[in-house]
């Protein structure tokens, strides 16, 4: 178990360094790659906390799907770096203001013991003891599908609405686009696919123009 602190410092250091590089990197693609590194190390920290289920879900959802789409979009963008940096000084005060609010909130979160002592003392559901043989996938399932089932369903509904919204915004029926109809292709038989003609010797038959496909 004494290996755990060494790995904690490794993951924590790389997470912070990668997080810094996300905003410091000049090339947006590099920034996204550093973001992925940060996600990955955060997953490592979850494993050290004993929350291996959350760690794997973090990797599957954020690294495996969300960041791929980020990378996809960023790679397709034609970014003009000079133009990107032009507005830096103009927007700096606003950025600093938002940063300050975030900093204050983070300080409050970290120092919550002073604001409300004993907030962690009573968890809303009993946490299974480490040796009880209950894996944390099971432990999460027990509270997620019983106590928090409505929140869970609500979150699912919001995602569904967002998904339908995205489809509605991008779905356009273009006129004049030829589409493949696999059913029609498979259903083609002898009658519809070939014409058998008897050609008399020395004669020629010009087939009638076929109705369009």
């Amino acid at each position: 178990m004494t290996l755990a602190p060494a790995f904690f410092y490794l993951f924590a250091f790389v997470t912070v360094a990668a997080g810094f590089m996300v905003i410091a990197a000049k090339n947006p693609v590099h920034a996204v790659l550093f973001l992925i590194l940060a996600f990955f190390n955060a997953a490592g920290l979850f494993v050290l906390l004993g929350a291996e289920f959350l760690a794997m879900i973090l990797v599957v959802v954020y690294v495996g799907a969300v960041a791929v789409l980020f990378l996809f979009v960023v790679m397709m963008l034609d970014v003009d770096f000079a133009e990107l940096r032009a507005g830096f000084m103009k927007n700096a005060p606003l950025g600093a203001f938002i940063g300050l609010i975030l900093l204050a909130e983070l300080v409050l979160v970290v120092g919550f013991q002073m604001v409300r002592p004993g907030a962690l003392a009573a968890p809303s559901a009993p946490i299974p003891a480490p040796g009880s043989g209950i894996t944390n996938a099971e432990a999460i399932g027990r509270v997620l599908y019983t106590k928090y089932v409505y929140y869970f369903q609500g979150a699912g509904l919001i995602l569904l609405v967002a998904m339908i919204g995205a489809i509605v915004l991008t779905l356009r029926h273009k006129e004049g686009v030829k589409r493949q109809s696999i059913a029609a292709q498979v259903a083609r038989g002898k009658k519809t696919a070939i014409d058998v003609v008897q050609v008399a010797p020395g004669a020629a038959i010009v087939p009638p123009a076929r109705a369009s496909q």
């Binding site: 291996e52 289920f53 794997m56 599957v60 799907a65 944390n136 996938a137």
Partner: peptide, 12 residues
């Protein structure tokens, strides 16, 4: 304990 999830994550 989450072996198959790990495998799924890595392959993705």
């Amino acid at each position: 304990n989450v072996g198959i999830l790990y495998l799924f994550a890595i392959s993705s």
